[in-house]
Each structure stands twice: as C-alpha cells, then as structure tokens.
C-alpha cells in the first residue's frame, strides 16, 4: 500500500477544520482524481500527502512511513520520493529550462553534484528525455520566463517526472492549458504513472477530465469524503450532491476560497 490515511484530521492554526476523518488507501498502480468545489479541502489533502503539512490527528502512512514520526533526515529522504506538481509551477523566471528540470533530483544528488550541475548541466540527456515526452524538448536551453504559462506548467511536470518519485501528486496540473493540451497532458501523466508503477493523485476542477482520465475518483465536500468510487460508477446524483449549493451559497464559498488562499500563501 503506497498511501493510507486512517481518521486523518487537519485543522488550520486559526482553528478552521479543513479535513475531518479522512479514511483512504491508495495502491501503487492506482490513478486517483480528487474533485470538489474550491475550499472543499483538495489542496490541503494534497499537502498532507506531500508532507508540507502535518495532520492534526489520525494516522497517515506514506510509503510505509508516518511523516510525523520521522527524523528531519528521514523526512528529507521521504520527501525526495514524493513528487508534487504545483498548480503555478515554482520556477525562477531567469532559470533555464534544463536547470529547472534537473532541480527535480536535488533531493537525491550530493551538494557537490548540484553545484557542478549549475556550472554545466550534468544530465542534459535525462532532462531532454522527460521534456520530449511533453513535446517541449526544443525549449531545453530557453529561459523559463520565455515560455507560455501552459509550457511552464509542463516544465513543472517534467521536473517531477525527472525526479522519478514513488508517489506522484498533482495540484490542478493542467489549469493553465487549453482543453486539447490538458487532455493530452493528463493522458501522458496517467500512462507514465502506469508504466512506472507509481500512484498518481491529482486534484482537478474539471469533472469531465477527472472522469475520463482517472479510473478512481474521490469527491471531497467540506473537508469530508462524499464518495470514493470507480469513475464509471459515478452518477449524476453523486456530482449534484458534490456541488450542491456551491453556486448559490456565495458567501460561504467565498469564505472557503479566501481561507484556502490564505493557507496557500502561508504554507507553500
């Protein structure tokens, strides 16, 4: 079992409960989409899985480790085995694409190798291979601020692919891409995860993308799992229940979104 959560609760420092009683287990060969309205707790759940937040209570096991019980060193090692694709790719604008991709393995490299690689990229071929899977090989030596938002998002994906993690997480990985590219990118991500035998967990706004590209879909609502089913077993009623009132109850939704934003700026 790659990931298992038992009774996991997360409460923000300001006392707002973002996740309550999450029970979940994900095997290495699974691709899971997390859907739900904004503020439902998707990002918080991904942050728990990425060990950038610690659960308030409950048991969280990642690759047979509980991040809360690990020493700083062991936690670093665990983190280097988990790849998180960010919604807004965290790339320094002046960095070259090749360096940005190679940075994926900093957790595994020695400091000496990291320094040398800044002088001359130590694995150009490796970076090119991952970029070419995302049709970006020709951008290898360009600067990150010279490519479009969708391309930056794919560079962020290439970095995580280069990291070769044992768990792949993705927070809205295709939000800056047009529909065709989004479909294409998600299918590539899925096939790479299958090929490497690592679990892929992605949060998505677009329900149809989730249903189409992920065999298993988890619906989050107000910090709880509303459903956790095979994609082909999800009915319209499930989706209606998931997004019930979210359009009408504007104030609650805005409040939740604001809370989510403040969390993002504080924690990541």
């Amino acid at each position: 079992m790659s990931i298992s959560l038992t009774g996991v609760v997360y409460t923000h420092p300001n006392g707002m409960r973002a996740l309550s009683d999450i029970n979940l287990s994900i095997k290495a060969d699974e691709q899971v989409a997390i859907i739900g309205s904004s503020g439902a707790g998707k990002t918080t759940l991904l942050k728990l899985l990425a060990t950038s937040l610690l659960s308030s209570s409950g048991d969280l096991q990642l690759l047979q480790h509980n991040p809360a019980q690990l020493s700083a060193r062991a936690l670093r090692q665990l983190r280097s085995r988990i790849g998180l694709i960010h919604q807004s790719p965290p790339l320094p604008p002046r960095q070259r694409v090749v360096t940005a991709v190679l940075a994926g393995r900093l957790g595994q490299w020695s400091l000496a190798r990291a320094c040398l690689s800044l002088c001359y990229p130590s694995d150009i071929e490796g970076a090119r291979a991952e970029l070419s899977r995302l049709d970006l090989a020709e951008k290898l030596f360009e600067r990150c601020d010279q490519v479009s938002g969708g391309q930056q998002q794919r560079i962020g994906i290439a970095r995580v692919l280069y990291q070769k993690p044992d768990i792949m997480l993705a927070d809205e990985p295709v939000s800056a891409m047009d529909p065709v590219l989004a479909e294409h990118t998600l299918s590539i991500l899925g096939s790479i995860a299958r090929e490497r035998g690592v679990p892929l967990i992605a949060s998505l706004h677009a329900v149809e993308l989730a249903l189409k590209h992920f065999p298993r879909v988890i619906g989050l609502r107000a910090g709880e799992i509303l459903f956790d089913k095979r994609a082909d077993a999800i009915s319209q009623q499930d989706l209606d229940a998931l997004y019930l009132n979210t359009g009408l109850d504007d104030t609650a939704d805005q409040y939740a979104a604001a809370a989510n934003n403040s969390l993002r700026s504080r924690c990541l």
């Binding site: 090692q77 983190r79 280097s80 940075a103 994926g104 900093l106 957790g107 990291a114 993690p165």
Partner: peptide, 8 residues
C-alpha cells in the same frame, strides 16, 4: 518547492 521535495 525544492525543500519540499527533499532538497538540502
């Protein structure tokens, strides 16, 4: 993001 993926 780099610290979070295990970098020193």
């Amino acid at each position: 993001a780099l610290l979070q993926s295990g970098s020193s």
